[in-house]
Every structure is written in C-alpha cells, then in structure tokens.
Simulated scan of single mutants.
Amino acid sequence: MRLCELREMEVINGCTCKRLGCVEDLEIDLCRGCMDAIIVPVPGKICGLWGAEKEYVIPVECIKKVGPDIILVEISEERCLK
C-alpha cells in the first residue's frame, strides 16, 4: 500500500466509534526500516495550516484492521494526542 492510498482512508477509533480523521503522515524508524506510527491531524485543521496544532500519533500496535476505505484503531485519544 502506498502513502497516497493511506491518506484517503478514514481512521476510526474502535473504542469510542469516533472518526479521528484521515492519515496525514507516517513516522518511520530508518534504522529498522519499519513504520512506527500513523499521524492524523485533529479534525478542523485545514491542509495542516489552520486550526489546532495537535495531532494523533497512533502507534502501529494500536492498528487493529486496515480495510478498503478505513483504518480501525483502538486508542486512548488523550494518550495519543500530541
């Protein structure tokens, strides 16, 4: 899967059934060559410029399912909000 495909997918928190937004970026560990987290801006942020300065940094371990159009995660939103 490519980043451009991930960016079109909605991220849903399975614990609260809340829509978190769409993937904006990835956190990658270059030494291991693995993806560590997906980054989702808080709703209301437009093109990464206007709105809240916070984002969800969701560790890969919290991703439960990747479907054709959504990514299901199980997180405590307060702990992943940076």
Rank of each mutant, 00 (worst) to 15 (best):
51 G>Y: 08
55 E>I: 05
7 R>M: 11
26 L>R: 00
12 I>D: 06
63 I>Y: 03
25 D>S: 10
10 E>A: 10
9 M>I: 13
12 I>E: 04
24 E>C: 09
4 C>T: 14
69 D>Q: 00
63 I>P: 03
31 C>P: 01
29 D>W: 04
41 P>T: 06
40 V>F: 02
72 L>N: 10
50 W>H: 09
11 V>M: 07
82 K>L: 13
73 V>I: 05
16 T>S: 15
56 Y>V: 00
35 M>Y: 04
36 D>L: 15
22 C>E: 15
66 V>K: 11
8 E>R: 13
52 A>M: 11
56 Y>D: 00
29 D>R: 01
5 E>K: 10
57 V>W: 06
25 D>A: 12
48 G>Y: 14
11 V>D: 04
18 K>E: 15
53 E>K: 10
56 Y>W: 03
74 E>R: 13
26 L>D: 00
77 E>M: 05
18 K>H: 12
34 C>P: 00
67 G>F: 04
79 R>K: 14
24 E>S: 13
34 C>W: 03
79 R>T: 12
82 K>T: 13
51 G>V: 06
26 L>Y: 06
58 I>M: 03
64 K>P: 00
39 I>W: 01
45 K>R: 14
3 L>V: 13
72 L>E: 04
15 C>L: 12
2 R>S: 15
56 Y>M: 00
73 V>G: 04
11 V>F: 11
79 R>C: 07
14 G>S: 15
53 E>S: 12
16 T>G: 02
31 C>T: 08
62 C>I: 00
51 G>M: 04
58 I>P: 01
77 E>A: 08
3 L>T: 07
76 S>W: 12
70 I>Y: 09
73 V>T: 08
39 I>Y: 03
70 I>F: 13
66 V>P: 03
40 V>R: 01
32 R>L: 15
54 K>D: 10
80 C>A: 14
53 E>F: 06
69 D>G: 02
58 I>Y: 00
78 E>I: 03
37 A>C: 11
15 C>E: 10
82 K>C: 03
56 Y>E: 01
28 I>L: 04
71 I>G: 01
44 G>T: 03
24 E>T: 07
24 E>W: 13
63 I>S: 04
50 W>R: 12
59 P>H: 05
77 E>S: 07
69 D>S: 07
70 I>D: 09
74 E>S: 13
36 D>M: 12
21 G>M: 04
64 K>F: 06
54 K>M: 04
61 E>A: 15
78 E>K: 06
80 C>F: 08
42 V>G: 03
24 E>I: 08
3 L>M: 14
80 C>R: 05
47 C>G: 07
52 A>V: 10
78 E>Y: 03
15 C>M: 08
45 K>Y: 02
75 I>Q: 01
59 P>A: 10
26 L>I: 14
49 L>Y: 06
43 P>W: 10
79 R>S: 11
51 G>L: 05
70 I>M: 12
32 R>M: 12
49 L>C: 07
14 G>W: 13
59 P>T: 11
51 G>N: 09
19 R>C: 08
61 E>F: 11
25 D>Q: 12
69 D>E: 06
80 C>K: 08
